[in-house]
Computed example of a mutant assay.
Amino acid sequence: MSATRSNPMSKPPSLRVERAMLRDGLTHLAACDEVGRGALCGPVTIGVVVISEATRTAPQGVRDSKLLTPEARLRLVPKIRRWALCSAVGHATPAEIDDIGIIAALRLAGQRALAQLTVAPDGVLLDGNHDYLSPPQQAGLFGEPEERYPVGVRVPPVTTMIKADLKCAAVAAASILAKTTRDALMVELHDEHPDYCWAENKGYASPAHIDALSRLGPSAHHRRSWSLPGVDPDVDVEAVLAGLESDA
């Protein structure tokens, strides 16, 4: 089996964007990506790697984690950890997602990852078009008490970039760390709740997952504030399944 899944956008990413940001005055750049945002259960997870202008080209084979086989992702993890100046992964639990919402939970997971870094970045490159890492201008809004967040974490200026995980090697590396760490957690949880088949679907919607939800209801690891297919009668299960088939 090929290590890289067939995809028209599978051209290898580079450090061109990251190096331009570092030449523009940054000393240490953090590259971040998330995984688990669209799952039905389990945590939302943020991966981060820190690089400098002296950082070498990323390990061969680094791509957006979605374009790699599970085996290829696992082989790359130790290479990425040796390559980056430092790296970390942070999570927010399903209960926290239910309590404060997915955007605030992404912020919480990201700041937990930043808190683990041994090298403080002075800039962040974030996949997507929304800066969920920076604190809201008015703390305490929307159910976000400040005590949830790691003490002493300073979020440096954030630059967002759509499809950065496809174009930027450091962001792709962060996505691999996030994906492999979260997948391992879901495999562990599968042993507690095998009916939901989390070892295969990693908490995302799948026919087996939806069937178990309809028979058993949600577990303690499901996002109970969400409209879960198989549980919420207003969710069109056939449409969800048709969407899964179109993505295959």
Rank of each mutant, 00 (worst) to 15 (best):
S10H: 06
W83I: 00
R182L: 05
L185V: 15
R75I: 09
L177M: 06
R112F: 09
A248M: 07
H28A: 11
L74D: 08
C32T: 08
Y132D: 04
R223W: 01
G203C: 03
R82F: 07
S14A: 13
G217Y: 04
W226E: 12
E53G: 11
L40G: 03
S6E: 10
G25N: 09
Y196G: 11
R182F: 08
T45L: 04
P78A: 03
P94E: 06
S246N: 12
A115K: 02
A95R: 11
R37T: 09
L40E: 07
P229M: 08
H221F: 15
A30N: 05
V187N: 06
P150K: 10
E147Y: 13
Q137M: 08
S246H: 13
A95P: 08
A173Y: 02
A20W: 04
Y204V: 12
R16K: 14
G47P: 01
Q116N: 13
L22W: 05
H209Q: 14
Q111H: 10
V235H: 04
P135A: 14
E18T: 00
S52T: 15
F142T: 12
A239Q: 10
T93H: 04
E144H: 06
D165F: 02
I162W: 08
P59R: 09
R112N: 09
E188S: 11
I51Q: 02
A220V: 09
A212V: 05
R16G: 15
D234F: 10
N201Y: 05
V235D: 04
P157A: 07
V151I: 14
L213C: 03
R63Q: 15
V49N: 00
E144Q: 15
Y149F: 14
R75V: 10
S134H: 06
S206I: 13
V62I: 11
M1V: 13
A120N: 07
R182W: 09
G42Q: 04
P13D: 03
T118W: 08
L29S: 01
H91C: 15
C41T: 11
A88T: 01
E245T: 14
K163Y: 14
V237K: 10
M1Y: 07
R16A: 15
N201Q: 09
D183M: 07
L177S: 01
I100R: 14
R148K: 13
P94I: 00
H190P: 02
A115N: 01
D183N: 12
I176Q: 00
L108M: 07
H193W: 13
D165V: 01
L85W: 03
D232R: 10
L22R: 02
G47H: 03
A170T: 00
D236R: 13
V171G: 00
S6G: 06
E146V: 15
P156V: 03
V240N: 03
G101R: 00
A54P: 00
K11I: 15
Q138Y: 07
V119P: 02
R223H: 05
L74M: 05
Q138I: 15
A3F: 05
G203R: 00
P59I: 02
E188W: 05
H28N: 10
S214C: 09
A139D: 11
